[in-house]
Amino acid sequence: MDASTKVADKRGQSSADKRTRMNRRWFFFFISPWLIGFLALTVGPMIFSFVMSFTNWDMMTQMNFVGISNYVNLFSDPIFLTSMKNTFLYAAISVPLNLLLSLGMAYLLSFHLKGMRFFRTLYYLPAIVPVVASTILFTNILSSNGLLNKMLGFFGIHGPSWLLDKNIVLFSFVFLAIWGVGGTMILLLSAINSINDSMYESATLDGATRMQMFTHITMPQISPVIFFNLITGIIGSLQTFTQVYLMTKGGPDNASQMIVPYLYTNAFSYYRMGYASAMAWVLFAVIMVLSVIVLKSSSAWVFYEEEVK
């Protein structure tokens, strides 16, 4: 290699380096709004809230370090324990029910029949209604003399006071969750529709029944979407706020109190920001653990095509 080639090579290398540097700068320039937002509005407050959870800060006077007493007190706070129980019960009922119903609806709506677009629109519509509007609507539907009890009365059934009875008030929120099933359904429907028809054709040639096709083709193919909905469903239901805040304010007698509204009340009505922060971190830990469990279990039931060798 002569000297002139070496120089040309060096020049080429340095211009490539320059381009890489330039690209890197542009990369950071374009992601900087997100990066700054993430650091300032998510990571920053998270670190601050973690520090606060070890203090007795009331937002108005100086904060004092109280060690882990906020965390200890949480587990002797009867309303917090009730909120935990209510939140888990709500999640345990609403998430699987929501998935099952949306899966069934998506499967039925995937058939290529006349007028199917109308039904798809009809079932999806409730999902685009803002949660505030749907909650207010359900407050009226579920009142003692509301639409639901009037319908039950038509069949001779005397409906209960859905929002006043401690034992059943939680189911009112399940109704509300089911009403918005269209959001999950639309994702599952698009996943079902994206399955290659040739798979069903070859299965039909092999003599597979509709059920066998559903369990061996449809389910594995849409399992990543089910997995996504399961994770977001668990997180969303554990963070329920608006519905409780608007429909019952946690009542009657805390029977529908959930973690996030109780956390909010402690922070902003009872001047206990430190205690509320501890509550938030316990909830974060719970969500983390559940997400990891679902994530770990996913290898057993979630099927990714690119993983097949």
Binding site: R21, R24, R25, F28, S32, I36, L39, A40, G44
Partner: peptide, 14 residues
């Protein structure tokens, strides 16, 4: 160096 600059810029913004 790029990372350092970026870090400083982010810290300043925050």
């Amino acid at each position: 160096k790029g990372w350092k600059k970026l870090g400083l810029a982010a810290m300043a913004a925050i």
